[in-house]
Each structure stands twice: as C-alpha cells, then as structure tokens.
Design a protein around this nucleic acid. Sequence first.
DNA 1: TAGATTGTTAATCGATTAACAATC
DNA 2: TAGATTGTTAATCGATTAACAATC
Lengths: 215, 215
Amino acid sequence: MGASETGHKKPPMTASILERLARYYQCVRGINDADTITITSAKIAESVEVDDTQVRKDLGGIGLRGVPRVGFERSDVIRALREALSLDEAHRAIIIGTGRLGGAIANYAGFSDLGLTISALFDADSRIVGSHVGSCVVRPIEQMESFIKERNIRLAILTLPAEHAQETADKAIDAGVQAIWNFTPGRLRVPEGIIVRHEFLAVGLCILTHHLGMK
Amino acid sequence: MGASETGHKKPPMTASILERLARYYQCVRGINDADTITITSAKIAESVEVDDTQVRKDLGGIGLRGVPRVGFERSDVIRALREALSLDEAHRAIIIGTGRLGGAIANYAGFSDLGLTISALFDADSRIVGSHVGSCVVRPIEQMESFIKERNIRLAILTLPAEHAQETADKAIDAGVQAIWNFTPGRLRVPEGIIVRHEFLAVGLCILTHHLGMK
DNA sequence: TAGATTGTTAATCGATTAACAATC
DNA sequence: TAGATTGTTAATCGATTAACAATC
C-alpha cells in the first residue's frame, strides 16, 4: 500500500503549509456525514478560513487532483493527508511530567487517530510514581533514558515544571529522542536535526488580553 | 498611571506582530538575573528566533527607544509590552468543562502574571459539580449565563467535550462574553467582533509526526 | 576616538490573492 | 450545452532581511 515514492526529493514543506494541511485534515476528518463522498476546495477553505485557491494548491502539492464541477473525493483527501502527515505510522511517545496537563494529554482520545500512542509516563515525584493514568503506570524519571533506548522512543512530550525542562530534554535527546512536544514555557535549545514544537499557551492568552484591552 | 493615549487610532497590530510581542515578553520577563538592567535587540532576537531588526521595529512600534551601544532598559521593555498586551488590566475568566485540561489551566500559576484570574469553573456532570479545583468550586453549567451577566465576565475558556462546544460558546456570547480561548478541536463560528483563539493541539502533533515520518 | 548598537530606508523574499482558461 | 469547479499563471501584498547612516 502506497509504496514509498520513486526517491525524488520531495519539495520541502514549509511550516505554514504543514499547518494548513493539518487543519484540512481536521476539517475533512470531522465530517461524519455518510453522504459526503466529495468535497470542494471552497468548502474546506471556508471551514479553515483560507483562500480556496490555496487549498487547491496545497492539495495539488500532495498529489491530489480534483474533478471540475465535482471537487475532491473525501476518502482520497483523507488518505493523502494522512500520508503527508505520516499519520499511518505508529508514533510511540512518552510523557514527562505527570501533572494535570500530562494527564490530559495521556487521556485525550483524539490523538490515537493521529497515530499517537503513549508508551509511558514519567515523574520525579515519588508520591505520584506507581499511580495509574489511563492504562499506564507512572514510572520514576530515573528510568526514562533506559526506557527510551529499549523501546526506541522517538517522541517526548514535556509537561513538567519549567525549571527542569532543558536538562530533561537534553537527557531524552541523548537517549535517542528525535522530536519534542514542549508544553513548558521557555524555548528549548536542541541540537541540529532535532524537531521541537513549542506550545506556548501564554502567547494565545496575551493575544486575547490585548484584544480585550482594545474594547 | 499611563493614562490612555491622545485618542489617535493606533496602527492596527497584525496577528504576527502580537505573537512576537508576547514572545518578547516571555523572554524578557523570564530573565531573573538581577544585574540585567539593559537588554539588546540581538539578545531578544536570539532567544525568540527572530531577526534583530524585527525586534527593534516591533519595540519601536510600541514607543520604545533604545540607546546605541547599550540597548533597551529591561524595565521599560516589560512595561511597554505589558501595556501593549493589556496585561495590567484584570481579566476575569471562566473555565467551561472541568476535565484534566480545565483543571490544568485553572491551576497554572504562570497566568496570574498575565492578569488572568479564574472566577469560576463550570461542568455539566453533576458528579463533578461541587468539587474543588484550586480555590474554586465547580458550578453547574446551568448557572453559567447568569454568572457571566452578574460578574461581567468577558473571557471564557472552553475545555469541554467537542460536541457541546459550539452551543456553549453561543450561550456564553449571548450572555456577554467577548473573547473565547478554545481548546476543543473544531473551529467555532462567532459573530463579528467576538475574538476567538483556537488552540488546536492536533496541529502541533501533526507537524511533529510529519517530520518524524521524513526521517 | 573607536566601536557597538540603534533606527530607518531599500531590497528581497515568500505567501496570498486575483484572473482566467481548461474541463467534466 | 451551460455552468460550476478545477489547475495554473500572473499580480499583489505583506513580511522579512540587508544595508547603512546616526549616535552614544
């Protein structure tokens, strides 16, 4: 199924394209209407608040062709987006820091559709270690590095106190982690080639407070 | 203090400028070094991963002047950014949906520096209603609208199940809410003039899985 | 003074939008 | 056929970067 391409270098995807693709996926996937077998670029565009030309260009960029007067076949769009975003691979992740936020992520059902499974949770607090979160036991942070190595973990989710974020990230990367989803405030410094996604919630809040202040 | 300006229309701030300002604030605020009384645009730029010209332009845009060979006074920068982002006003918010994510936000200490206080939490589940989260009691969702009206709440944080997000947002807006911080997947439709910030965590995850798939 | 850092103007770059022919 | 929607090219727009004179 979908054997990997001819080996051509694919055109590099910019961050903004990827972000749109992810939004298209949420949109198209979200339609539960069984009769919807085709969808137009205009429909997606409206839902994602993007120009419809942009949608066609982006979908064209991942190999999709639409049919004039009809649009795109929904199942094709989903398949192509899943391929582009690597959602069909199994992504095993660990969560580091088992507070409420870590727990929320561990239990969020929607992520399994994106190929994410949580292999383990870790915490430095011995009172929390051993308790259950979803189907996982919380393990002591000291076991993190060996766990990453043994289970070939490539993705780490950081939901621990900010003051330990950098050193913990460093250890995780040393042990083999390739990508970090960071929920702590403060930018992480990582070596070339390691991917970090920062979710700075304070940024979103500041934008809201600014607008409220203008009223 | 800082009486509102002469009434000039300020140049509208684009979303990307605001986002950078919020990042500058995190950066400058994050420095706890007591000797750091001045900071250069290059320093901020490095930390936020932006061009230093950009930093000077943005800071200039909110009225800051730097000193050649010296940089900007840190306290000035903080004050100007807090003003631009309206962080000195008290922003009372309610959290709708008291799962783990709602609890995490309610308890996040860092938000108080941004002027945010959580006035109440609401939930539709009668088993949760009455329990404590931080210093707040969880109230029944039926009381949401009257609470918004009585307390003049302008900001609602949505951490409830996706299927109820739109209708609940509609009710909150009807009752007087002006801004919504949305953590549910799926874009909300809101009337003109209402501000929404969507935190689509799935987007961040998709970007990471894409990059992992390329390796 | 010399040199680091600023503020600003001009040039580049990329992303978005508009226009329109192609087509089912 | 007529008309809706596509794919693509060209034009616009805005954001980023580079260059450099001003200045403490």
